[in-house]
Each structure stands twice: as structure tokens, then as C-alpha cells.
């Protein structure tokens, strides 16, 4: 399981970074990106799903 942030959609709401700082970080402009290669350890799967479900711009997706 991996998370991805679509940079063309992210507007820097920072909801993912607040919910799952283990999975997401933000750059100097406040835009989010997935940490490393986006791999989600099983114990963080629920946080990953919440990050997807709370993004106002629908910018985050999960790829299995």
C-alpha cells in the first residue's frame, strides 16, 4: 500500500500532514508530499485512509 499526493491538485490545506506526519511532509510553500516512496506500514493504514478522506482538494490517493 502506498500514498500519493497529486501536486497539481494540492493547495496546501495541510490536513494530511496534521493527520499523518509519519506519511506526509510539507515543502517551503506549504504543499504536501509523501515521505520516501509513499509506502504505508500496516499500522499506519488507517491514518492513510483518513488523510485521503479529509483532503478538501481530493489530491491524495492510495495505490495498492
Amino acid at each position: 500500500m502506498k500514498v500519493q499526493v497529486d501536486q497539481s491538485k494540492c493547495q496546501g490545506h495541510n490536513r494530511c500532514y496534521a493527520i499523518a506526519p509519519e506519511l506526509f511532509d510539507v515543502d517551503d510553500m506549504g504543499n504536501a508530499f509523501a515521505i520516501g516512496d509513499g509506502v504505508v506500514e500496516p499500522h499506519l493504514a488507517e491514518k492513510a485512509r483518513l488523510a485521503v478522506a479529509n483532503c478538501p482538494e481530493y489530491a491524495i490517493s492510495i495505490v495498492e
Binding site: 493547495q11 483518513l50 479529509n54 478538501p56
Partner: peptide, 15 residues
């Protein structure tokens, strides 16, 4: 509420 995709800070380029 855990799932809360609110738009309080706007949507799109003017977030």
C-alpha cells in the same frame, strides 16, 4: 467527526 473534508479555508488556487 473523523471524516471531514470541509472547505472552511476555501477550495482551489485561493486557499
Amino acid at each position: 467527526r473523523e471524516v471531514n473534508r470541509h472547505a472552511a479555508f476555501g477550495l482551489g488556487i485561493h486557499r
